[in-house]
């Protein structure tokens, strides 16, 4: 849109005819913008403000106490642990999957892409149940795990597995179209110049996909922190042990500790806002890069 304006401004002579065909009359523009703004205010801004208002209802001391409560701290800590395991693993998986799909030709490629999308279409609760059925006490692998002394369901490994399942499409989905549009010729050039597979990946592929990768990581990160359904099924809600932040908020809320619930919720909102800011910076950066390139 901005480019259109500059073009018009630069052309000398009759510019009367350059009115953009896709542009609506001013009035319609304003109506549409107002609708969007109203919608966003109602469903996003007001609830967000409500969270903070509710959180500070009983004063800053109560707010801090709610967050500093051992159970809350444990929930924050567990969430961070899950993120630290899930996001790097999914980053590796995403890059490998995108590489496989875009750089090689093989049968069943489309089927693989569909499989990667599966977590998007399966309800998180069902995903959680699958893992309970698989790893639970009476599950297919449960007895084996029990004889080895490993506990997956109702403990951290289960939460991590469920989170990985829910969030693995994010990075792969971000990278596949990017790598498809970039093609394989730079990698081929690198190979003909004598670089091996790893050096080619490190010096050529990775720098080309770094912004897309980071974007995917941020989306994956946000979803991992916020995931409720699947984690709720496998966690068992053991206070101070297997409660992630969203689960902890639910418990507090169900116990009528509203301001504590909202205090933890406000923490999560802050995470979300930070993520949003980083995402915008990356978008701005990539945009800047692509306009420079063209």
């Amino acid at each position: 849109m901005e480019q259109d304006h500059t073009v018009v401004a630069k052309t000398n002579g009759p510019v009367i005819m350059t009115k953009n065909a896709t542009k609506e009359p001013k009035l319609i523009q304003w109506i549409l913008i107002s609708i969007v703004l109203l919608f966003l205010t109602l469903f996003l801004v007001v609830p967000l403000i409500a969270i903070f208002v509710k959180a500070f209802e009983k004063g800053a001391d109560a707010y801090l106490a709610a967050i500093a409560h051992p159970d809350s701290l444990a929930a924050i800590k567990l969430t961070l642990i899950v993120v630290l395991i899930t996001v790097p693993l999914n980053a590796v998986f995403g890059v490998v999957a995108a590489w496989t799909i875009t750089k090689y030709d093989f049968r069943g490629k489309n089927f693989l892409i569909t499989l990667i999308d599966l977590p998007f279409s399966v309800s998180p609760v069902i995903a959680g149940l699958i893992f309970v059925l698989l790893f639970g006490l009476h599950g297919a692998l449960g007895t084996v795990l029990q004889s080895l002394g490993l506990k997956v369901i109702f403990s951290i490994p289960g939460i991590v597995i469920a989170s990985i399942f829910i969030t693995f499409p994010f990075i792969a989905r971000e990278l596949i179209p990017l790598m498809q549009s970039q093609g394989t010729s730079e990698e081929e050039a690198s190979l003909t110049l004598g670089a091996g597979g790893f050096k080619t990946f490190w010096y050529v592929t990775l720098p080309n996909i770094k912004w897309g990768l980071l974007y995917g990581v941020i989306l994956c990160n946000a979803r991992t922190i916020g995931e409720f359904g699947a984690v709720s099924v496998v966690s068992g809600h053991i206070r101070g042990m297997t409660n992630t932040m969203p689960l902890h908020i639910e418990i507090l809320y169900n116990e009528y500790q509203f301001s504590a619930a909202f205090a933890v919720a406000s923490m999560m909102s802050i995470f979300a806002i930070i993520t949003l800011i980083i995402k915008s910076i990356i978008e701005w950066k990539t945009d800047f890069k692509s306009t420079k390139a063209s």
């Binding site: 730079e186 081929e188 050039a189 690198s190 003909t192 110049l193 004598g194 390139a293």
Partner: peptide, 28 residues
């Protein structure tokens, strides 16, 4: 390929977009 010591020039150049001209030539 990497052991054949051939120079290959592509129709659409296939220069490394994230490297300067200097680094492109120095790459090999």
């Amino acid at each position: 390929v990497k052991d054949r010591n051939v120079g290959f020039v592509f129709q659409h150049y296939a220069l490394f977009r994230n490297m300067t001209i200097f680094d492109n030539i120095a790459y090999g």
